[in-house]
Every structure is written in C-alpha cells, then in structure tokens.
Amino acid sequence: MKKYLYIIKTTFNDSIQYISSLFIRFIGFAITMSILLSLWTFIYQDNTTISGYTLKEMFWYLLLTETITFGSKSPVATNEVKNCIKSGNIAYQINKPYHYIIYSITKYFADTLIRFIAFTIISTILGLIYVGPINNISIISFISCIPVFLLAVLITGMIKILISLTSFWVEDSQPFQMIYSKIILIFGIFFPIEMFPKIIGNILRYTPIYSVSYGPAKLMLSYNFSFFLNILITQIITIIIISIIINIVYRRGVRKLNVNGG
C-alpha cells in the first residue's frame, strides 16, 4: 500500500509542475460552455422547464458532467497504457514489485486529481457568472457529493484503462477510446437521462453512464440522502464489475504477450 501512496505523491507533485498549461484549456472550456449556454438559452426561449429541468439546472448539469469529463482527461489511462503495451515496455512493468493495473490506476488518479480540482473551480466560477448558484445547495450536500464525483473520475479512468488493454489484441485502441468518449458525450453530458425516450433512459440507468455522469450531476442538483446512497452503491458495484473485467482482460493479455528481446 505504501508504494502506491508514494506513486500518488510523486505523480501529484509532477502534475503540479504543469498546472500552467491547464490555463489555456480553461479558455477553450469556457468558450465551449458559452456556446452550449447559447444553444440551451435558445431552446428554453418558449419553455420554463424541459423534462423537469430549468435552464439554470440544465446549464449546471452540463457544467458538472463536463467537469468530470475534462477533469479526467489524463493521458495515463489512455496513451501511456496503450504505448506501454505496444512498445513491449509492459514486460518490464510486470516484473516490478507492484501490480501494473493498480499502478496505472493510482498514477491516473494522482495525475487527474489536480486537473479535476482545477476544472471544478473554473466550472463553479462559470456557473456563478452565467446562471448563478445551484438552488437549495447546502454545505452538507456539497461535501456528500465529493466522494461521488471522485468515484466518477476513478470509474472513468478504469474504463479507459480497460479500453487501452485491448492494445494486447488490436493495433490501436484509440478508435475505441473515441467511441467511448462520444457515447459519454451524447448520452451522458449533453442530456440528462430524463430527456431521452423512456426505453433509452431505462437502459442508460444500467450503464456506467449513470455512475460517471448522470448520477453525480443529478445528485448535486437535487440532493437527497437516499439518492446519495443509491449512487454510491451503484458506483461501488460498477467499480467491482469493471475491476473483475480488467483483471480477466489483463491476465489474458499478459498470457498472450510475446516480446522480442533487444
């Protein structure tokens, strides 16, 4: 356990060195959000609520889901794992005194943490400027949402690592990462589940989208304890399921590994 804490510490310190490069991304994020606000303001012209959401709630929903997405954009879970497998470097990694997957997850989490905190701050500022504070938010609900958002970031990373592990079999896992990001964008970020037809909405409730996108954002918008427990339990179950799948895929991949010396 100590070694993984050390990985978190060193990666976190490393990420802090590059925090200035995030500022330029904030501008892009702010502009993307203002374009989406323009779109939703126009859609809400003739309506006060759509599928139970006011314009303010809708914009905060977008901000919160985008925060998880932008905040968890760490190359550790995507390019680093993919390149490690493709280059054969994984042969060295699996001989080290740690489990490669746990190492990747802890490194991803540490790398993404500073990014996530920075995007949370910028999202809050944007939300307050554009539409004002979330209605009925309290300190308790805000603090309760923190573990849910952190678990959402963790699950996002685990899914990305799982996709990267396909590099054991395919030339490039990048197209699969792209498909995943589009699915999240359309079904998890742009619209809350209630805005889809009932059948699609019901299906989405049983997918990771519920844990990584809809659930955390909805909890922040309308907090209640039973919903908090519901999301938390769903996230823990999702983590267990993905861990099992990662373990199976990783074991099979390593068994298939054939590295030429040099």
Binding site: I43, N47, I50, F191
Partner: peptide, 9 residues
C-alpha cells in the same frame, strides 16, 4: 444530439 433536441422543440 440534434434528434434529441428536436424531440424537445
């Protein structure tokens, strides 16, 4: 995305 928007407006 747009199909969903056009179910709303």
């Amino acid at each position: 995305q747009w199909l969903t928007i056009f179910t709303l407006v």
